[in-house]
Amino acid sequence: MHTGILPIIPSASKLSSPETGVKVAALGGGHGLYASLSALRLVTGQVTAVVTVADDGGSSGRLREELDVLPPGDLRMALSALCDDTDWGRTWRDVMQHRFSSRDGVKGSLDNHAMGNLLIVTLWELLGDTVAGLRWAGALLGARGEVLPMASVPLTIEARVNRDGEPDQLVQGQSVLAKAGQLEDVRLLPENAPACTEAVMAIHDADWVVLGPGSWYTSVLPHLLLPEMREALCTTKAKRLLTMNLDVNDLEATGMNAADHLHVIARYAPEFRIDVVMADPDSVGDVAEFTDAAAMIGATVVFGKVGSSGAKAVHDPLRLAAVYRDIFGDQKVT
């Protein structure tokens, strides 16, 4: 810890929006978690994001390798999604999301680094505390909620890749596996890594736990592969909501349909039960098959048109917020 600074660490309650509402722990990573948080912040002022820490590509991967820190990129994305909806909050969100780009012909040391990644790592080094650093970053953005890592150490995802006509290959690394194709025997390394204590507490304290959307094997499933996190998800008294992807056949889930995604959850965590599975009807082919797969993990299905009107498979925050609000109950939109 930097000896020239005596930090006063802001509490999570002081960083959250003053509005009340249902307590939600939202789990995931990357753009999927960004989508759910962008919607949830419209429904309640009590959101805790629990973020995967297995990224090993891009700016995050470089900082992880060079400084031996948690990869900050998905944490930065979650903070940006929860920023205060004011000029102050939006400006600092844009600062956090800004990426440096070297001039033509120059390969600079800052090239493609996100400013927010550097800021978060700076706070970690000064404060010597990962959670405290994220709380300070959240205070800067006026974040409407808290952002926590799922584990207190960096994680590595390992899986066997099934390619047609080729023997299965054992592959490590989120950035590689995200584009690898059909995955089998997915696991986290180290296998008994410690979960973030505050994240486990948030799951037990929540009224609802929202898992997904996101890359199924590298952003959603890891929460069920970390032993302490999995136990918390299975024993919490909170209700559990699984948000399906709009694109269920991306590079990471080649050949899979919506029902197959639910079978993945059941296969890797058979004791984990879901209360509600929420899906856009356009992403579900065989409704009967999907409903049966949801029932297998204890869930009822709620369909809602939550995709944006554009060509890309992107969740619309307002539409997603409306469906979340209906599922949670008659909650005030803040």
Rank of each mutant, 00 (worst) to 15 (best):
M1W: 07
T3S: 11
G4F: 13
L6M: 13
P7R: 15
I9S: 14
P10F: 12
S11G: 14
A12K: 05
S13V: 07
L15H: 05
S17T: 15
P18D: 07
G21R: 05
V24P: 00
V24L: 04
G28R: 01
G30T: 01
L33Y: 02
Y34R: 14
L37K: 01
L37A: 04
S38N: 07
Q46P: 10
T48W: 00
T48Q: 01
V53R: 01
V53C: 02
S59R: 07
L63Y: 06
L67H: 05
D68P: 05
D68W: 08
V69G: 01
L70D: 08
P71V: 06
G73A: 04
L75S: 02
M77V: 06
A78E: 05
A78P: 01
L79C: 11
D84K: 15
T86N: 09
D87H: 10
G89I: 09
T91A: 11
T91V: 09
W92S: 08
W92L: 13
V95T: 11
R99C: 05
R99V: 09
S101T: 08
S102V: 06
D104G: 12
S109C: 09
A114I: 05
N117G: 02
L119E: 10
I120V: 11
W124M: 14
L126V: 13
L127W: 11
G128M: 11
D129E: 11
T130C: 12
L134H: 03
R135D: 04
R135G: 06
G138H: 02
G145Q: 00
S152V: 09
V153T: 13
E158V: 15
V161D: 02
N162R: 13
R163D: 05
Q174V: 04
A178I: 03
A178E: 04
K179H: 10
G181M: 07
R187L: 02
L188S: 03
P190E: 06
P190L: 05
D205F: 03
D205W: 04
A206Q: 01
D207H: 11
P213C: 04
S215P: 12
S219C: 15
S219A: 13
V220T: 02
P222N: 03
L224V: 00
L226W: 02
M229Y: 08
E231A: 13
T243G: 05
M244N: 04
D247T: 04
A253S: 15
T254D: 07
H261S: 03
R267S: 01
Y268W: 01
A269E: 00
E271T: 10
F272Q: 13
F272G: 03
I274T: 08
V276A: 07
V276T: 15
M278I: 11
A279H: 09
S283M: 05
V287H: 12
D292T: 14
A294H: 04
M296E: 10
A299G: 05
T300I: 12
V306L: 15
S308I: 08
S309V: 14
S309D: 15
A311D: 14
K312G: 09
A313N: 13
D316Y: 12
R319N: 13
L320R: 01
Y324F: 15
Y324T: 02
R325H: 10
R325Q: 14
I327P: 09
Q331A: 11
Q331P: 08
Q331Y: 12
K332Q: 12
K332S: 09
V333R: 14
